[in-house]
Computed example of a mutant assay.
Amino acid sequence: MTEKVTDTQAPLDRIRAENIVDRIGSFVAAGVRVTRICAECESGINTAQLEKLLSEMRIPGTPQLGDWFAGRAEPHLLALEKWADEEDATGQLNLDEYAKTETFERVYGTLFAAHKARALVAITATYGIGKTFAARRYARDNPRRANEPGAVWFEFGPGTKGDSGVLDAILGALEPYSASSGNVSSKLGRILTILKPGDFLIADECGIPTEKGTGLRFMSYIHEQAGIPVAMIGNPSFHAAVWGKRSDYDALASRTKHISLDGNSDTDVDAWMDFKGITGRNLKKVVLLVVGQPGRDGGLRGAETVLSELRSRGLDVTAENFLETAKLFGRMG
């Protein structure tokens, strides 16, 4: 009897190899750290090898796979493919399974239009409604690769402060394999040199740098000087800083097309419940109560937290259990 050949045993031809490289590149564009990929990949690939693999695979006429890394390219690629499969199955960026909510479609559509028009846009809304997921999904669908322009998503971390902090975050997205260095002028010059027509910067958590300086003003300068689209995404603090009473961001506000979204809608909840396979009029009423909570406890993210806890404890997804669990986790005022 002939033994069945599995996918991992099958010959690694160029088409399959390029597909693996494209998948890994799309994760990087969507904000997955290269250090994490290398740490979790079972082949022992390091960041320098990963950078080489992702960049040279996209150049016509590069050496055959067996010549790379003293014959180690194929094991690395197979291990990366396994990592990507596992990430799609269990990670936060499972692109094949998600609820197509009205909010998701609006955020995704805004980014698509901005990319096409090379526009400077801002999307502001309350917490937990799905802005970040839609943005990362867009970056994965339209990724910036080593030798091809495209979208890259990144977020400003809690420690982002001042001009240098904003530029460091941008450089970290554009050059994820090396540390940022130099003064503000050199960092800005490096960013403008790297960016090419067709690139798209998608910056998330934009409220953080507005609380600790005026570095976010570089976003409009980069948009104008590089001629590339830029999207800024943030919560109420971002909205208040740029379109509120402060005057230090007036120039940015005047140059930016601003989309202000409400919280998750009734149709968002319908789509989410359908996707999760849960039904019931009374259950929907409770989910809407959780989703409508003010501040960081609301949105579909709040409902997702409650549902995950219910299922982890083996409880039936009823209106009563959903409400009690929501209260337990502080998702109800």
Rank of each mutant, 00 (worst) to 15 (best):
Leu252Thr: 08
Tyr249Cys: 02
Ala241Gln: 01
Gly227Leu: 09
Thr256Asn: 02
Ile259Gln: 14
Gly244Ala: 04
Lys245Glu: 08
Gly215Ala: 10
Val230Tyr: 05
His223Tyr: 07
Leu216Gly: 01
Pro209Thr: 10
Gly207Lys: 02
Ser254Val: 12
Cys206Gln: 03
Asp204Thr: 05
Leu216Phe: 02
Ala226Glu: 06
Ala251Phe: 14
Ile222Tyr: 01
Arg217Cys: 14
Glu211Gly: 15
Ser254Trp: 09
Gly215Trp: 01
Lys257Tyr: 14
Ser237Cys: 09
Leu216Asn: 03
Ile202Ser: 03
Ser237Gln: 13
Tyr221Asn: 13
Trp243Tyr: 09
Glu205Ser: 09
Ile233Leu: 05
His223Phe: 05
Gly227Pro: 04
Ile233Glu: 00
His223Asn: 10
Gly213Gln: 10
Ser220Arg: 15
Leu216Gln: 06
Ser247Phe: 10
Val242Gln: 04
Glu224His: 14
His239Pro: 10
Pro236Trp: 07
Ser220Cys: 10
Cys206Gly: 03
Glu224Trp: 04
Ala226Pro: 06
Leu216Ser: 04
Glu224Val: 08
Glu224Ser: 14
Ile222Asn: 05
Arg246Lys: 13
Asn235Glu: 12
Trp243Cys: 05
Gly215Thr: 11
Ala203Cys: 09
Ala253Ile: 13
Asp248Ala: 12
Lys212His: 15
Ala226Leu: 08
Gly215Val: 09
Ser254Met: 11
Ala240Asn: 12
Ser220Phe: 10
Ile233Ser: 02
Ala240Glu: 14
Ser220Ile: 10
Lys257Val: 13
